[in-house]
Design a protein around this nucleic acid. Structure first.
Lengths: 215, 215
DNA sequence: TGACTTAGTAGCAATTTTGTACTATGATAA
DNA sequence: TTATCATAGTACAAAATTGCTACTAAGTCA
């Protein structure tokens, strides 16, 4: 923070990695670009930062404009500032990751041109992405994996009422490894409480529904 | 990342939290402001991001210009973008934290106006800082505490050859709690190797010197 | 009604963490 | 030259956690 030398030619963008889990796969919301560089490619939903909004507000706006979602989990990820990230101008991107369960996302009536794409596929390189967005997603995916163990982000991927097998699956997908049922339950039980309801209708024993316990 | 609407009035700054441990206390490098807002107050060393440099290069420049230090540990911390952070103009600050052992810092011949200040004192509010820098330091100090357990940052605070009691002290200061000698040694021993030298001259049993083991 | 499939639990073995108590060694001072 | 001091370093048991296996439970479906 020093003398701001007159006019600045550096743009500030805010991009969002909106993750969800659907069909037992980690997926991310991407938008199809309609403009000049990388036209037709998928990219992260992003906005140019306005002078009148904070970074987080810009991230919320980005999510809201594309998907209609409000009040979802949103946390800053990293800021990317390589020189040639954007061919148009020097752009610094502050990235956020957002998490939601797929139910909310379906219900929110997203734009056309908004797609849910498998993160694994993207990392394998299948849909090639605009800018450096593949690298950003790779970074975000790794952070997500690390965060599972020392935070409660897993709950963001399930609805308010969920079964323990559902929640366990979320952990397994984020961690990339299978967990033992008995241990998972011992670990998670202090954090949840039964709602009294059951999830029935499956061709096997029904499971209890839980909610997240306060504090 | 979207249409960059003509001229932008948002400045990008890069500020650095340069931590070290001296006299058994976590300290941070601050500079005394010589200019308009908060003149005379302490502030984090920072620079305005240049169009021709990456964020990390700007952070390195900030460290080098103030302290002369090169090639030190540097990692991005967080990006702050509240509206009223800087009274002069809307400024987004990308912050980095840097770590060094106090020996290097002394040897580097820092500027006048560069001070090493106790982080605990700052958090208690003693030297009041410019801008939102106290909050930034608080955030950085917490992250540092968390990082100790799943990274090797503690090694950055000691010289190449160090004793295990020295290294343990670093852990204790960063974690804010005392560790059991025996446990600490079991935990750390796979990461270090003896140099064959001893640190002698103390009025008690001398201790072996170690270095960090490769990979 | 019995087979199937997943939900949920019991409990032991292996490992890690926590904690205490001991021995070791150079400097210092009588 | 020897006892004392202060910290370095080690041994080992108790407690907690994790890893793993094997069981019982309860709906649906043929």
């Amino acid at each position: 923070m020093k003398n701001n030398s007159s006019h600045q030619k550096i743009s500030v963008a805010v991009d969002v990695l909106l993750f969800t889990i659907e069909d037992d796969k980690l997926k991310i919301v991407l938008v199809k670009r309609k403009e000049k560089p990388f036209k037709g490619s998928f990219a992260l939903p992003g906005v140019a930062l306005r002078e009148s909004e904070t970074l987080k507000e810009a991230a919320e706006r980005s999510v809201r404009e594309r998907t209609g979602l409000k009040n979802i989990f949103l946390e800053q990820l990293y800021t990317f500032g390589e020189l040639e990230r954007d061919p148009r101008s020097r752009t610094v991107s502050v990235t956020y990751y957002a998490l939601t369960d797929p139910g909310k996302l379906d219900a929110s009536g997203a734009d056309d041109g908004v797609s849910l794409i498998s993160v694994d596929e993207i990392l394998k390189g299948d849909p090639e992405l605009a800018f450096d967005h593949r690298g950003i997603i790779e970074y975000g995916r790794n952070r997500l994996g690390g965060k599972v163990n020392y935070s409660d982000i897993a709950f963001e991927f399930v609805p308010e009422e969920f079964t323990l097998p559902q929640l366990q699956r979320v952990y397994e997908i984020l961690l990339g490894e299978n967990l033992y049922k008995a241990n998972f339950r011992k670990m998670i039980s202090p954090l949840v409480e039964e709602t009294g309801n059951m999830l029935t209708g499956m061709a096997h024993r029904p499971s209890k529904l839980y909610r997240r316990k306060e504090v």
